[in-house]
Each structure stands twice: as structure tokens, then as C-alpha cells.
Write a protein that binds this DNA or RNA. Structure first.
Lengths: 151, 151
DNA sequence: AATCGACGGTTACACTTGCAACCAATTCGA
DNA sequence: TCGAATTGGTTGCAAGTGTAACCGTCGATT
């Protein structure tokens, strides 16, 4: 007899449901205020917190598909929130970094994020978020270390 | 000076990244094997594990938008994996349940899921998944209890 | 019983997304 | 050293998605 299958305790399902919920909840905080899509916010956040990066770097860092990154970067560029600079050594890549306006926007959204998380932390109790994130790190590491379908 | 903002420890970001990663990884297991989309798999899983439900039930259970459910159900129906039955007492609702073929498919995919999760569990150590899921449950509860802007 | 609002479910439309094909620049290999 | 394979990045297209508007049914109020 096969072991019972309980969807409620199937990790991909649970992770997705929680991620969707929290993501939607937080996106409301910036969507109407900055007219920013989720990929845009992610790219902005990556650039703001890491500094100068290439498009590929952003994709790896935030696990976004490269076309998504490409479009988000394009949108941020049109807003004059980031500028590209050529790399003389390898002219395929373009280094990206935030303009002054972009950094200002980043600070504002980062502020929103800090507030959001600290409210959540208050509701969950201290250390709860760290524990979850430690667990997530383990999951990611396991998945990346043992890719089920190479490359 | 504002507190520093570290994207790496921002929960919505981390949750999304992990969810995307695991979801993609698992979907590879069934997508090409069953030509099934994610909403279809979710609806199938809900019906298979809970039993007879209405479309609305499925949406609540798996946190899917009703149009997504509608389309997934339609697709499953065309495959003859589920059948609808009228409710004489209320002709708006339609009870949905899996056909024999649908149950067979469900068993196969559930099997895949079990295997997937047990492999993961082995890599993570016993209890790790339960701990993460307990944390996720807390997060969901906090978000649903204190909706920042939600009907 | 006629009306109004709510509800289950579907659909039209516009927007977003991923895949694959592509371009240009670089590296590899015989 | 020249061509093939690889890489960073963009784009055309088809498929997926959410919003809003809709249809038919139900329940309550009158």
C-alpha cells in the first residue's frame, strides 16, 4: 500500500501558496505608490543592495528568467532609474547601476520593505523569520547542489 | 541613518525565490510526462486528495483565482479526467470529481510527488520540512489575520 | 410573486510570461 | 588562425494570467 499523499504537507505546494500570499500582500505596498511591477522591484532591489551588476547577475541573484530581467531593466531604464555602461574588456556585457533618482526610489521602497518586515516580525515573534529563512537556505542549497535535470 | 536593508533577509523575496526554484524543479517531473500545467496539477491534486468538490472549493483550498480554476477544470474535463455532476438543490454549483482515468493519473502524479519530497527530505534531514511548514503556517496565519488590504 | 442583491461560474480583453530563435561578441579547439 | 561552440542579452510569438463584465440561479425582502 502506498504511503498516503497529503497535499497540505507537500513542500512545493505550501511554499508556493505562502509565497504568493506574502508577495501579493507586499506588492500592494508599492504597486500603486510607484507603479512598479514585481520584476521591476526585484531588479531595483538587487541593484540597490548589491550595487553595480550585469543583467545576468541580477537573474542569478533573484532567480529570474533572463527575459524577465531584460524587460525589467528596460523599464527601469526608461524611467531613468538606471544607466548602462559598457565594459571595454567584454563588449557583450553591460554593467548596470542606479542613477541618483533610482537610488532615491530604492531607498523609499527599501524603507517600505523594512517597515513591512518589522511589522511581520512583531506578529510572528522574534527569531521566527530567521528560522524560516535558514530553512529556505537549506532547501535552495539542496536543490542547486543536486539538480534533478542538469543545466 | 536608516537601518540597513538586506534584500537577502527580506522574507517576501526569499520566499519567492525558494518557491520559484522548487516549483520549477518539481514541475519538470510531470510537465513533459503528463503535458500538464501547474494549475491543472493543482486542481487534480486537490480533487484527488480531498474528493468531490466544487470549483470554488478548489480555489479556496489551493489559493487559485477562480478563472484559473475554471480553465484548469475545463482542461481536465476535456481529457476525461473529471466529470461534473449537477446539484439539484442548487443549479449554480457543479460538483466535480475524478473519473477512473483521472484517479489513475492522480495516483501516478502523487507518486511522483511523494518520491520527490522523500528525496528532498533525505537531503535535508528528518524534520526539516515539517519545521519549515510550521513556519509557513504561522506566516499565512499572520497575513490572513491582519489583512493589510484585502476583502 | 416580483425585485434586488449576492453568488457560482465563464468569457472577452489586455497584459505578462516563457520558449525558442536570434544577434553580436568571445572563447575554444583542431 | 579560422570556424564552431558558447555566452550576454533582446525579441517574436504563442500560451497563460488577472480584471472586469457578464449569465444564470438563488435568497431575502416586499
Amino acid at each position: 500500500m502506498p504511503a498516503p499523499f497529503d497535499l497540505e504537507s507537500f513542500l512545493p505546494y505550501r511554499l508556493n501558496r505562502a509565497a504568493e500570499l506574502i508577495s501579493l500582500s507586499f506588492s500592494k505596498e508599492y504597486k500603486q505608490r510607484f507603479q512598479m511591477t514585481r520584476p521591476e522591484w526585484r531588479a531595483l532591489a538587487a541593484l540597490g543592495s548589491v550595487g553595480r551588476m550585469t543583467a545576468t547577475d541580477i537573474g542569478v541573484h533573484s532567480n529570474m528568467h533572463k527575459t524577465k530581467v531584460s524587460r525589467a531593466v528596460h523599464a527601469l531604464e526608461e524611467r531613468r532609474w538606471l544607466k548602462r555602461s559598457e565594459n571595454a574588456a567584454d563588449r557583450r556585457v553591460e554593467h548596470l547601476e542606479l542613477t541618483a533618482q533610482g537610488q532615491k526610489a530604492y531607498r523609499e521602497v527599501a524603507d517600505l520593505a523594512r517597515t513591512y518586515q518589522s511589522t511581520l516580525e512583531k506578529a510572528l515573534g522574534s527569531g521566527a523569520i530567521e528560522r524560516i529563512e535558514a530553512g529556505l537556505a537549506d532547501v535552495e542549497q539542496a536543490l542547486l547542489a543536486r539538480p534533478r535535470k542538469r543545466a
